[in-house]
Simulated assay, not measured.
Amino acid sequence: MRNYQIYWIEESFANHYYGRERMFFGLFSDWERSSGDLNKIISKQVEFITKPIPYLPTHRILQHELVKVEGAKWIDTTAIIEGEDSGANLLMNERSISIEAWGPNDCEYLFFEILRRNMGQLLAIDLDNERYGWLKPIKQRKFIY
């Protein structure tokens, strides 16, 4: 089972920490493991560096794109892609998108591709397997001297 949390990172933080995504992973990992006052402090940091996920536009984009995918359906507020022996569920929260995937095929990449094409600065984190990365890598500016 693979569980991803996808966060929309503020542009200034995304640009500044591009190439140092491990720092984001460390912050979200600490947030997951912490409790009490430390959890409150880290929660404020996470809230500061992330943007809320725009629910209706994102929902419309997913609905429009998933019509083209075989085995995709909506149940209440959850998007589901099911294959023969694999699948993925997507659930939108206020500040993150949760994706749970199972099986040998990587069904979650269909969700990643839809989100990548339509939104910017999205960071996907799988805390259990220590996997993380941008859905859409940031283009670096090249200055001519």
Rank of each mutant, 00 (worst) to 15 (best):
A79S: 12
I97F: 05
I144C: 06
T77G: 08
K68R: 15
R20H: 12
L122I: 03
T58V: 12
V67K: 14
G71M: 08
S43E: 15
F28Y: 13
Y55K: 12
I99L: 11
L90A: 12
N39T: 04
D37Y: 11
W31N: 01
V46T: 13
A79L: 05
K136E: 11
P137E: 12
K139I: 13
W31L: 14
L127N: 09
P52Q: 07
K51Y: 07
D76Y: 03
I61M: 04
L123R: 07
G71Q: 09
L91S: 10
N93L: 14
F111G: 02
M23N: 09
I114T: 06
L66Q: 07
M92L: 15
I9R: 04
K136L: 09
W102Q: 03
H16T: 04
Q121W: 09
R116P: 02
R117M: 15
L110P: 00
E100G: 00
F13S: 00
I6G: 00
G103E: 08
E94W: 10
Y18W: 12
L56F: 11
D128W: 13
K73W: 03
N93I: 05
E113M: 01
W74D: 06
Y132L: 10
I80N: 07
T50D: 02
R22I: 12
V67H: 13
I53Y: 09
P54L: 04
N89M: 13
V46L: 08
F28T: 01
D37R: 13
R60N: 13
I80H: 05
R20L: 12
D37N: 10
S34R: 03
E21Q: 10
L135K: 06
E32K: 15
M1Y: 08
K51L: 14
Q5I: 00
